[in-house]
Write a protein that binds this DNA or RNA. Sequence first.
DNA 1: CCCCCCGCTTGATCCCGGTCAACCGGGGGA
DNA 2: TCCCCCGGTTGACCGGGATCAAGCGGGGGG
Lengths: 246, 246
Amino acid sequence: MTEPALATLTRLRTACSQCNLRELCLPVGLSADELQTLDNLVSTRRKVRRGDSLFYGGEPFSALYAVRYGFFKSTLTSGDGREQVTGFYMAGELLGMDGIGGDRHTCTLTALEDSEVCVMPFARVEDLSRHFEPLQRHFHKVLSREIVRDQGVMMLLGSMRAEERLAAFLVNLSQRLTARGFSASEFVLRMTRDEIGSYLGMKLETVSRLFSRFQEDNLIEVHQKHVRILDIGGLKRVMAQAQSST
Amino acid sequence: MTEPALATLTRLRTACSQCNLRELCLPVGLSADELQTLDNLVSTRRKVRRGDSLFYGGEPFSALYAVRYGFFKSTLTSGDGREQVTGFYMAGELLGMDGIGGDRHTCTLTALEDSEVCVMPFARVEDLSRHFEPLQRHFHKVLSREIVRDQGVMMLLGSMRAEERLAAFLVNLSQRLTARGFSASEFVLRMTRDEIGSYLGMKLETVSRLFSRFQEDNLIEVHQKHVRILDIGGLKRVMAQAQSST
DNA sequence: CCCCCCGCTTGATCCCGGTCAACCGGGGGA
DNA sequence: TCCCCCGGTTGACCGGGATCAAGCGGGGGG
């Protein structure tokens, strides 16, 4: 009953059942009891400073991470040293699933602003999902959605022109921010033009020019990293302009 | 003991424990007993004729499929009707994982030659993996590897020039065929130039021109769909030529 | 067996986006 | 406070790969 105050605090601090992101990370519609069994998922939290990496490609895999706050990019480095940004991750999203298959991480995860993640030792994830069906199902869905997301990026890179890709990127960002309670129309880009370009398969100069063009067309307002979306419908129209370039 | 001959035949025909592809689909190092529990994974087999689809994007999801023989492509269709090939699948590979997340398939799977798949109702996959740890682990690895594969394609599309992509494609095909006991250096392409182009983010004319160029450079011999690899090392060198074009 | 159609090849030209270069401006460190 | 550096913007030019077009050849259907 009476536990030391500090212990209580620690438990509360890492309790999924108390977390306001739980509808993003965890299955919904659970009873209070069920929710508490899930509190065992997270062993600790870990802060990652802007510019630091949560893990590197090649490192042994041991845990999944849920973003508590902050912003990450994932990058892949090819044999000859080229770096490709493969994704951006924000609060409530899961990191590290690439490591399950080969017991080491294949990509590097780097914080683009001061961030914090919940550490979920993978052995616990597997144990708990063997004994608790809703978690199992949820975990499978999260893995599958990552596959679907990646296929969406393949479509983006494989069949859209540069302006369509950037429009799709902005619409996607806006939607994900909205889902997290942020403004849908005004936000600060945490990544550089170069990182956006790498993700979208174009050069930073092209990203910059397209931002300027979108601004001329009154679709957005840009000042450095600050973006305000003026015409989301217009962006969606740019996205779906057909006439593939590849 | 004495079951009707037909029943025995049917059971044997769908028995994973007897399948020569099991080291591709299933966890390795299992006892005979353990293997037999896995025979319950597959409910039936299904033949798919060349040109027919196993499932379509938008259809409800109910099962995963393991390719028994044949060859498939997966395609994604965007809002405006553009089609993107997102992968090619051969014997021993798993199809349908995109459907888990949203309970419907997001892509369409089409046979590029007469094929057969093992049908694994997803409820059984989840049930069995709750009770049988090696299967759970294996299944998670398969999902994760699909994510890693997709990220590899993102790198391909995002940071490689056309000739590098095609070289990477040929090397990858050759490796997967070798793993299945086929010749590493001589094979028949099951897909058209257009499908290769869609997958690699380029036009069919570019694919054709590059095949011709590779032939001039004595890297390969091509006649229509027949390919013979003459210099795999040369192809790998083309792949890693650096000097990104995007 | 022959013919037709579809997939492939190859040439000519164009243009999107890459490359190179110069400049700008804001924020962080001394 | 000032300065420096790094990220961003913009212009000029170029080239890889798209587009348009014509011809070919092999395999499947009548």
